[in-house]
């Protein structure tokens, strides 16, 4: 394989990995605060539809991306009211958000099916982007990719290097103790959920504005769920999310290349690859885990109802 072909493959892997990475980072923060948001898929698909619709109307990719994130925040706010404020069941509420998001995205995107836009612009640094082998890889990505990488660093720094991050992690591990300390459990959780929604919406907007770039109903095709699995796979650590996203992105790209090359397996078997890989990854992770010790935030998914 020549250097340029290798670069091409790596560029496509990064493109496939970026939405998974952004959505998983948001979910990671929410889960670190103790909230399991199964609505990622719905927030992502609504972000994709809204982002594309707004970008078409305003002609600006950036406005579209912001609107996509905003749509994710709106749905996350509803999720937060249900689970954080009203202490409703997180699993069921998350599923409701996914169903609602899929339905709403269909309504929002209905009149935009079949339209095409130019993909989000790629960075072009004279002299650098043209470098053979690494030019496009390092200096030729679109804004989403760079923002995603910034987000990895920012989330890592926030969670492990700031007091607020420590508070968030403590709340995710024991809401009763942190509540007794006077920490604002529900406020932090609500904000974490909103951040997760913004990331999911942005990841969706990446799909419709940069990756494909058009809107098709249910175009997320389970990526929100894979992002959820990615958080578990990464043991709730941002840097491992980056590595995991590249791995999963790699599986997706491998499947596409294998399908194009026409190897003996039926197309459906290859399409099932990312889902089977997710199950396999979860199994391997459990096998490798120390007996008895769970890496998940201890209060993850548990309902907190303060009174007095």
């Amino acid at each position: 394989m020549s250097l340029d072909v290798m670069e091409m493959v790596l560029v496509t892997i990064i493109a496939a990995a970026t939405p998974l990475m952004i959505a998983a980072l948001g979910e990671l923060v929410a889960e670190r605060a103790g909230v399991l948001n199964l609505g990622v898929e719905g927030m992502m698909v609504l972000g994709a539809a809204t982002g594309f619709a707004v970008a078409v109307e305003t002609g600006s990719t950036l406005t579209g991306a912001i609107a996509g994130a905003g749509a994710g925040v709106a749905l996350a706010a509803l999720f937060g009211i249900l689970t954080v404020v009203l202490s409703a069941n997180q699993v069921a509420s998350g599923l409701a958000m996914t169903i609602l998001g899929l339905g709403l995205s269909g309504l929002v995107g209905a009149s935009y099916v079949g339209l095409k836009r130019d993909p989000a612009p790629h960075l072009d640094v004279p002299g650098l982007t043209g470098l053979p082998g690494i030019g496009r890889l390092v200096f030729g990505q679109d804004g989403f990719v760079y923002f995603g990488l910034f987000l990895v660093a920012a989330v890592w720094w926030f969670l492990w290097r700031t007091r607020a991050g420590l508070v968030l992690r403590a709340i995710g591990d024991d809401h009763t103790a942190t509540h007794a300390l006077g920490l604002k459990v529900r406020k932090v959780r609500f904000l974490a959920v909103l951040f997760g929604g913004a990331c999911a919406g942005l990841a969706g907007a990446y799909l419709s504005l940069a990756y494909t770039p058009f809107w098709a109903p249910a175009m997320t095709a389970g990526r929100g769920w894979i992002a959820l699995a990615l958080v578990v796979f990464a043991s709730w650590r941002p840097l491992r999310v980056l590595a995991g996203a590249l791995l999963f992105g790699g599986a997706t790209v491998l499947q596409l290349h294998a399908q194009a090359a026409g190897i003996g397996l039926p197309g459906q078997a290859l399409s099932a690859l990312p889902y089977l890989a997710t199950i396999l990854a979860l199994v391997l992770l459990s096998l490798g885990k120390r007996q008895g010790g769970s890496l998940a935030p201890a209060a993850l998914g548990r309902v907190f109802t303060p009174h007095r």
């Binding site: 069941n89 169903i99 899929l102 339905g103």
Partner: peptide
Amino acid sequence: LPLDLTRAFQGLLLALVLGADALSRYRV
């Protein structure tokens, strides 16, 4: 009216049912 309206309605219904359930379980 698009079929997605039905789906959105069903998702919203589930969300509201869960919310109403919380209100019948807790005094707010």
